[in-house]
Simulated scan of single mutants.
Amino acid sequence: MHLQDKRVLITGGSSGIGLATAHQLVAKGARVCITGRRQEPLDRAVEALRAIGGDVFGVVADVGTHEGRGTTLVGAAAFGGLDILVNNAGGVRAGRLEDTTEAEIRAMVEVDLLAPILLTRMAMPLLRASGDGVIVNVASGIALIGMPFYATYAAAKAGLARFGESLRREFSGEGVHVMTVYPGATETPMMSTNRAGPELGFVRESADDVAISLVQGLESRALEVVRGGDARMAMVRINQETPAVLDERFQALKPALAEAVRDHSAL
């Protein structure tokens, strides 16, 4: 796929993977609309993207609400249409399920699963009109391998992954492609309250590295982009074939992991 002049909407685009992806797409000549819930970070992001020559604007909106999704699409349509939708906005609250409030559970399901589904549904007329539309769903490595203390987040991100897979097959031959991205632990504001390191399974990488892979996936029309290399894929195979092996590994890590992630919250 050639990205020059493609019209792109990125939710959660004022920081992290979303902003890094916007930088990569601008460098390819795409026209980009980014969304975020807060005005000041969004303004800074737009200014930085325009400073490198980007045809960019921002929309302040919460895609977790019906009104916010409507505002988002009105803003994105200012380019005269939409070719690529990147469902990137997300939220997390780690911890034991019984210690997670109902409000926190609902917030994760709303922003990580329901919002992408409903925004995609609303965007379909624009994506179909493109004739070469693409939907990118940013899931998580935790959607492939469920980790303790991330039960709701894992459920929502796994749901997003299967949503994308089903939708890809639904749209096959109809001019709309769907790609799912599985980042690992990434250095973003969302991870700032997570103290877990490589010894606990959180090998961090930069948002730029994830964004580069995402854009390469767009260009090659990949079905999936899985970060983490051979080590991640080996764990996925173990999780499929002998999951009890990972159960034992996580059991040994539980006390240290529980302490390291107990304050991990970005909602």
Results as ranks from 00 to 15, higher is better:
Thr152Ser: 10
Leu127Arg: 05
Gly164Asp: 08
His177Ala: 14
Leu200Val: 14
Leu218Ala: 04
Ile105Thr: 03
Asp112Asn: 13
Leu97Thr: 15
Ala103His: 11
Thr242Glu: 14
Glu67Asp: 15
Asp132Asn: 15
Pro243Ser: 00
Arg121Ser: 14
Gly53His: 10
Tyr153Ala: 03
Asp55Gly: 06
Ala27Tyr: 12
Arg227Gln: 12
Ala94Asn: 02
Arg93Gln: 10
Met179Gln: 12
Leu73Lys: 06
Thr35Ala: 01
Ala234Ser: 05
Ser220Cys: 12
Asp209His: 05
Leu246His: 02
Lys254Thr: 03
Leu42Arg: 08
Ala143Glu: 00
Gly159Ser: 00
Gly164Pro: 05
Phe163Arg: 07
Ser15Ala: 14
Gly175Gln: 01
Gly95Val: 13
Pro255Val: 10
Pro125Lys: 03
Asn239Leu: 09
Asp209Val: 07
Leu167Arg: 01
Arg262Ser: 07
Ala123Met: 00
Glu40Asp: 11
Thr152Met: 14
Met147Leu: 10
Met190Pro: 05
Gly68Tyr: 07
Gly58Glu: 00
His264Asn: 01
Ile238Pro: 04
Arg44Asp: 04
Gly75Pro: 08
Glu187Gly: 15
Leu97Ser: 13
Leu118Thr: 14
Glu67Pro: 10
Ala151Glu: 11
Asp132Met: 10
Arg38Val: 14
Pro189Asn: 03
Arg162Leu: 14
Gly91Pro: 07
Ala161Ile: 08
Met235Leu: 13
Ala266Cys: 15
Gly18Ser: 11
Val136His: 02
Pro183Ile: 04
Met1Ala: 12
Glu174Gly: 00
Val225Ala: 04
Ala161Val: 10
Leu118Pro: 02
Ala51Ser: 09
Arg38Asn: 15
Asp55Val: 10
Ala30Thr: 11
Gly164Ser: 15
Leu113Trp: 08
Met191Gln: 02
Ala115Val: 09
Gly131Arg: 07
Arg128Asn: 05
Val56Ser: 06
Met1Tyr: 11
Tyr182Trp: 02
Gly141Cys: 06
Gly91Asn: 06
Ser220Lys: 15
Ala94Arg: 05
Ala156Phe: 05
Leu246Arg: 03
Glu102Lys: 12
Arg69Trp: 04
Val203Tyr: 09
Arg31His: 12
Leu73Ser: 05
Thr188Asn: 06
Thr65Ile: 11
Gly228Asn: 02
Arg128Glu: 15
Ile212Trp: 09
Asn88Arg: 11
Gly146Val: 08
Ala158Asn: 09
Gly184Arg: 11
Val63Asn: 07
His177Gly: 08
Leu113Met: 12
Gly159Leu: 01
Ile117Trp: 03
Gln251Ser: 11
Ala107Glu: 07
Asp209Gly: 04
Ile10Met: 14
Gly131Tyr: 02
Cys33Met: 15
Ser213Asp: 11
Ile135Glu: 03
Val136Gly: 08
Gly175Ser: 03
Ile34Glu: 10
Asp5Thr: 14
Arg237Tyr: 15
Pro116Ala: 10
Ala161Asp: 04
Glu199Cys: 04
